[in-house]
């Protein structure tokens, strides 16, 4: 595996190094004939915080399963830090931590034991495994529960336990399959902070999520997968720049029964005092306020609708497969 120059999303040379993950022509057809992966090729650079998005059944978890060797590929290659996952099993697995989508620990084991045992599987001596378990359980706010059976934890805590378990051998690459599914906002935010912290410390992170805000907040690069094919693979900023329309939410002092008619603007009534307005690139916000004022509507506050990525996600997955060729071109320039 040749090392090569890579560029971050701002276009700077960020490193000359082997990708953390390099996938080439990956195909997977299950025994029932379902084609889950249809020739995926993907590079994730070292130190990246990378989002892998797709609808349910698109092939995200299968891709992760192949990387983690839980799923047998039909053909293609997967390399972790330049080493083939099939021929360099020990080295690649040592560099890899996986947080699965489903809770998959023994619920009757103690929290501390789950993490220490995982350390043992990676060859950590007991003393070191205990130190690491304490370190990560503390960092993830689980230390107070370390002596309890895992079944006693809340849903959010169970997900954080999965993260602590995946980190006990301190992998260079962490793959998280929907790590904050069903987690309340406070815990989700603190999990984001933790992930950003370990990413800053050098851990490459690949994240799949259904919370597109999560991907937009955390990730620098993104791939979208649909029907087993990569349809977008680019930098997050570049992708968001392709948005032709931004959505704004306006809270008003007025009480409305219908959305006001504003030629040239897409206006939706969210509730009697809240409007959502789509503003195309080049359109003027002052014009919006003027039109609203003319209609006797005064604005109390305004905010950008955060899920910009959601619009792109939906539009990309609606596009026919011809897009994939164009998107692959974007990859090379990203």
């Amino acid at each position: 595996m040749l090392a090569r120059s890579v560029f971050d999303c701002a276009g700077r040379i960020s490193a000359v190094m082997t990708p953390a993950i390099s996938i080439r022509n990956l195909y997977k057809t299950y025994a029932n004939g379902h084609k889950a992966l249809n020739g995926i090729s993907l590079d994730v650079q070292q130190g990246d915080f990378f989002a892998l998005l797709g609808a349910n059944g698109a092939g995200k978890s299968t891709t992760i399963g192949v990387i983690a060797t839980l799923v047998r590929k039909t053909s293609g290659t997967v390399a972790v830090f330049g080493q083939n996952v099939e021929t360099h099993v020990y080295e690649t697995k040592l560099n890899l931590g996986v947080v699965p989508q489903e809770i998959n620990f023994n619920h009757f084991e103690k929290v501390f034991d789950i993490v220490v045992t995982q350390g043992g599987y990676y060859g950590l001596p007991l003393k070191l495994a205990k130190q690491r378990a304490e370190k990560y359980l503390r960092q993830l706010g689980l230390w107070e529960k370390h002596n309890q059976q895992a079944r006693m934890l809340s849903g959010g805590m169970k997900r954080r336990l999965l993260i602590a378990r995946a980190l006990v051998h301190e992998p260079k690459l962490l793959i998280l399959d929907e790590p904050t599914a069903g987690v309340d906002i406070e815990l989700r935010r603190s999990t984001w902070d933790f992930l950003q912290e370990i990413n800053r410390a050098g851990t490459t992170i690949i994240l799949t999520t259904h919370y597109l805000e999560e991907a937009e907040t955390l990730c620098r690069n993104i791939a979208m997968i649909d029907k087993g094919e990569i349809v977008v693979n680019t930098g997050m900023k570049q992708l968001l720049q392709t948005l032709h329309q931004e959505l704004f939410v306006l809270d008003t002092y007025s009480h409305m029964v219908a959305a006001p008619s504003m030629p040239g603007y897409e206006v939706k009534l969210i509730d009697e005092s809240t409007l959502e307005i789509g503003i195309e690139k080049g359109q003027d916000l002052n014009q919006v306020f003027a039109l609203l004022s003319e209609r006797g509507i005064s604005v109390k506050s305004m905010r950008n609708k955060s899920n910009r990525l959601e619009q792109l996600f939906v539009s990309q997955l609606k596009k026919p497969q011809e897009n994939s060729g164009q998107s692959k071109q974007e990859t090379k320039s990203a």
Partner: peptide, 18 residues
């Protein structure tokens, strides 16, 4: 079988244990 059923066997399968 319990580990297989509740998928905790994956703890072992993703690790480098031969």
């Amino acid at each position: 079988f319990s580990q297989k059923f509740q998928k905790s066997i994956e703890e072992l399968l993703v690790s480098p244990v031969p």
